[in-house]
Simulated scan of single mutants.
Amino acid sequence: MKTIVLIGLVLAISGVALARDLPEFIHVCKKNEPNLSECIKSSIINMKPQLKTGVPDYKIPSLEPLILKELVATAGGNIKLKLTNVIIHGASDFSLTKLKANLETLTFVADLDLPRLSLKGNYDVNGRIILLHIRGNGPMEGNVTNSKGFVKIQMKEYKKEDGESYLKVAEIKTKIFVQDGALHLQNLFGGDPVLGEAVNNAINSNFNGFVTEIKPALESAISNAFTDIANGILQQVPFKTLFPES
């Protein structure tokens, strides 16, 4: 669910390195590269260890774990669900299956496979979801397996005080496709063990239906998190340095 952040992050990271001494883990992709998309894809794959641990000197945050502070979902007024302090592990263990880059339109599109994500956090829920009335708040934990992510990043140029052109994220569209998983919500219905177990079993029997309800909020939160990270990195490097002519 989360590794979707990785794609855009890498596109930004390339520029950070070029603006300073180029670290070994960055593979430069020139603007006239015969196959620019494959070059960027290879660079991302090469940087997976650094994406996992983070590199503070280059403002590359660690993606293990990924922390989403708040997710709020409402489905047609029937449910109010808030997830807070969600800690996600496994985001860096991704496979980049496809990447397409277009420097003319400044558009970047990527597909990813995520074998397994584990998550912990807190929840507060009240309402009807997958035909069940659910009420409670407390700790939650779970896992998501065999997920796929799609991300489309639209960037744009802007001028800074130094007269140089820079890139920034104008829009990100994120889509998540979940194949399977399990979730456990503690303290449902005030800690009632019978109702709590019944609802947890129902959720896990229709896990995809439950995820569908919270997907829009999750996709939005991931997009917002990446936008902040990427723009913080991109503002350090001129466009011409990010993608040199030769």
Rank of each mutant, 00 (worst) to 15 (best):
K2T: 09
K2D: 09
T3H: 06
V5A: 14
V5F: 12
I7T: 13
A12T: 15
G15D: 09
V16D: 00
L18I: 12
A19L: 02
A19H: 01
L22H: 05
L22A: 05
E24G: 02
C29K: 11
E33I: 05
L36N: 02
E38P: 06
I40G: 00
I40R: 02
S42H: 13
I45C: 02
Q50M: 09
Q50R: 07
G54A: 06
G54N: 04
Y58I: 04
Y58D: 01
S62Y: 08
P65R: 04
L66Q: 06
I67C: 08
L68N: 02
K69D: 15
K69Y: 10
E70A: 11
L71K: 05
T74M: 08
G77M: 03
N78W: 08
K82R: 14
K82Q: 12
T84K: 05
T84H: 03
N85C: 14
I88C: 07
G90C: 03
G90I: 01
F94S: 05
S95Y: 09
L96C: 07
T97L: 09
K98W: 01
L99K: 00
L99Q: 03
L103W: 08
L106A: 00
L106R: 00
T107F: 00
V109I: 13
V109T: 11
A110F: 06
S118I: 12
N122K: 08
Y123W: 10
V125I: 14
N126E: 09
G127H: 03
I129W: 06
L131D: 04
H133C: 06
N137E: 13
G138M: 03
M140D: 08
E141A: 04
G142W: 02
N143D: 10
G149Q: 01
V151L: 01
V151H: 00
V151A: 01
V151C: 00
K152W: 03
K152L: 06
K152F: 02
Q154K: 11
M155D: 11
K156F: 03
E157S: 11
K160G: 03
S165A: 13
Y166H: 14
V169K: 14
I176F: 08
V178D: 15
D180R: 00
G181N: 04
A182Q: 09
L188A: 09
L188I: 12
P193S: 04
A198M: 13
V199N: 05
V199M: 08
A202P: 00
A202I: 02
I203D: 01
N208T: 15
V211T: 15
E213Y: 13
I214T: 01
P216T: 05
L218F: 01
A225R: 04
T227H: 06
D228Q: 08
D228W: 02
I229T: 03
L234K: 15
Q236Y: 10
V237W: 10
V237H: 07
F239Y: 15
F239K: 14
F239D: 12
K240S: 12
T241E: 12
L242Y: 14
L242K: 14
P244D: 02
E245L: 11
